[in-house]
Design a protein around this nucleic acid. Structure first.
Length: 143
DNA sequence: TAGGCCATCTGGTCCT
DNA sequence: AGGACCAGATGGCCTA
């Protein structure tokens, strides 16, 4: 995790000038602003923690570079749709053998990444690739 | 150097 | 009144 923002002081509010007519009011405004900044920082950190959790669950091709927030959301969306499709197809084909369903879930387990899937056959490979369509091109979601 | 991504600050709005 | 959430602005870091 990068630590940033060396140019701005941690306390913030240097740039803005609260009403300086009353020193007390100035202090109150400054204190509240700093508190709000701290809360916002904490909130964003929580959000980033959530993104990190999501990145761990979501497939990630090529581990050299972490997904951006936008990419993570897109990937999560695509991942959910892929899983949903697997379930739908299982129902449609009446899934006579639970083994089949297990195989599909096996194929999209995160621990199998970055390859994404464990291919048992060329057919499986095609199926999963068609199920999982993260839109690297143009950030479009293909349903 | 430009563009992408990000952290932080800030003011506004809504809710408790 | 104060906290949570949000979006815009700003500036730093990194990579092609």
């Amino acid at each position: 995790m990068k630590s940033r923002r060396p140019s701005c002081t941690d306390s913030g509010s240097e740039s803005s000038e609260p009403d300086s007519k009353s020193p007390e009011k100035y202090e109150t405004v400054t204190r509240r602003r700093n508190a709000a900044n701290a809360r916002e920082r904490k909130r964003m950190q929580g959000l980033n923690t959530a993104f990190d959790c999501l990145r761990k669950v979501v497939p990630q091709w090529g581990q050299d570079k972490t997904l951006s927030k936008y990419e993570t959301l897109q990937m999560a969306l695509s991942y959910i749709m892929a899983l949903n499709r697997i379930l739908t197809d299982a129902r449609r084909h009446n899934a006579p053998h639970r083994q089949w369903l297990d195989l599909q879930f096996d194929c999209v387990q995160p621990e199998n990444y970055p390859c994404l899937v464990r291919y048992d056959s060329p057919t499986d490979q095609d199926y999963i690739h068609s199920s999982f369509t993260y839109p690297f091109d143009g950030h479009q979601v293909h349903a």
